[in-house]
């Protein structure tokens, strides 16, 4: 093997890692952020930041599944950022991001609705390049 091809292999390897990290960050925005908040307001007095680790584990699994299925990275990134942004705005406005009460049905419902809204809008962001197409009048 020549020096050049070895270097190319390393470059390819880093490019793959770069893709993996990008996917992971995107899915953190889509899954970890929302699910941690939902679990935090649902579970009372759980140790070791359990909601964060549980949703982090789910995100890691999703990342590897998408990575090995050779899906395109760009739509996942767009989905992740949109979901994270929409969720952050909604959860800050309705208070579920920093809810003082865990186990309260109100915060569970608002956190869930925020996450559902964020996921739905994230899907739409992947689905369309031109938002004007979605105007009800055509």
């Amino acid at each position: 093997m020549s020096d050049e091809s070895a270097l190319q292999n390393i470059r390819n390897g880093f490019a793959k890692i770069d893709q993996l990290v990008t996917l992971w960050i995107a899915l953190m925005g889509a899954i970890t952020f929302g699910l941690t908040t939902v679990l935090s307001v649902t579970l009372i007095n759980e140790p070791f930041r359990l909601p964060l680790y549980a949703s982090g584990l789910l995100t890691a699994c999703a990342t590897f599944i998408i990575y090995f299925s050779n899906s395109k990275t760009e739509p996942v990134l767009r989905f992740g950022w949109t979901t994270a942004l929409v969720f952050a705005v909604l959860a800050m406005v309705n208070g579920s991001l920093d809810a003082p009460t865990s186990g309260s049905l109100y915060y569970i419902v608002t956190a869930l609705l925020s996450w559902i809204a964020a996921l739905a809008i994230g899907c739409v962001a992947v689905w369309t390049d031109d938002w004007r197409e979605l105007r009800p009048w055509g």
Binding site: A91, S96, T110, L113, S114, I116, A117, A120, V124
Partner: peptide
Amino acid sequence: GLSAAIGS
């Protein structure tokens, strides 16, 4: 999505 957002 918008309905859930308004609801939340």
